[in-house]
């Protein structure tokens, strides 16, 4: 289906494309972080590919890998009807150097999605016009979707209330709900 897109991409960027696969029918290309924006621009501008729409942009934290973060973008071509997943890998084990070029000049949709990615993963998009937190509040420390951010950690803006003889008074403490909750990275809580 969109295998042709992958072929065109490899033909144009033989060095930058690190690997490709088509798991479950989703064609995927992994490119070098340095050519992220260049490849994206090609995907949009090339008349054979013409990805008019950036449908999704997110990141995945692979704690044990180096580079640690994977930036994942999904493109869709309205005119050609094909899709492509583009990935790149950035950042070291300490979560530093997580930087990649912005796609905002190419797709307006990238604006908020990159802000979200910065907010939740701490990915810096170089050249982004307005890289602020979007879902979390400005006082928030750290990036919650990183695997080393412990899920039970709380940073309430208003202290939990401590009322005598009352079991539950909002705002509730962090340990309420999630009674079955399983820690995917239990070793991190043990260290705490």
């Amino acid at each position: 289906m969109s295998q042709r897109v992958l072929d065109l991409l490899i033909q144009r960027f033989p060095q930058a494309v690190l690997e490709t696969h088509a798991q479950h029918g989703d064609e995927t290309a992994v490119v070098e972080a340095a050519s992220w924006a260049k490849v994206a621009e090609f995907l949009k501008a090339s008349p054979d590919i013409s990805m008019e729409m950036l449908t999704d942009l997110t990141a995945v934290d692979y704690l044990e890998r180096e580079p640690r973060f994977e930036i994942v973008a999904h493109f869709y071509s309205l005119s050609k009807g094909h899709r492509l997943r583009l990935k790149t890998r950035v950042g070291n084990a300490q979560g530093e150097g997580v930087e990649v070029a912005t796609l905002v000049p190419l797709w307006a949709a990238a604006n908020w999605m990159e802000r979200e990615c910065y907010d939740l993963f701490g990915v810096r998009f170089v050249g982004h016009p307005d890289l602020r937190r979007i879902l979390m509040y400005p006082e928030f420390e750290g990036h919650p979707l990183r695997k080393d951010y412990i899920a039970t950690r709380t940073q309430p803006l208003i202290e939990y209330r401590d009322a005598p003889n009352i079991d539950k008074v909002a705002p509730f403490g962090f340990d309420e709900g999630m009674s079955f909750g399983r820690q995917t990275h239990q070793f991190l809580t043990d260290e705490e």
């Binding site: 939740l120 937190r133 979007i134 879902l135 979390m136 509040y137 919650p144 979707l145 951010y149 899920a151 999630m178 079955f180 909750g181 399983r182 820690q183 995917t184």
Partner: peptide, 15 residues
């Protein structure tokens, strides 16, 4: 936006 953020994606990684 963000006033209704409940950490959906983080919660999903726990169950």
């Amino acid at each position: 936006v963000g006033y209704l953020h409940r950490g959906f994606e983080k919660m999903c990684e726990r169950g």
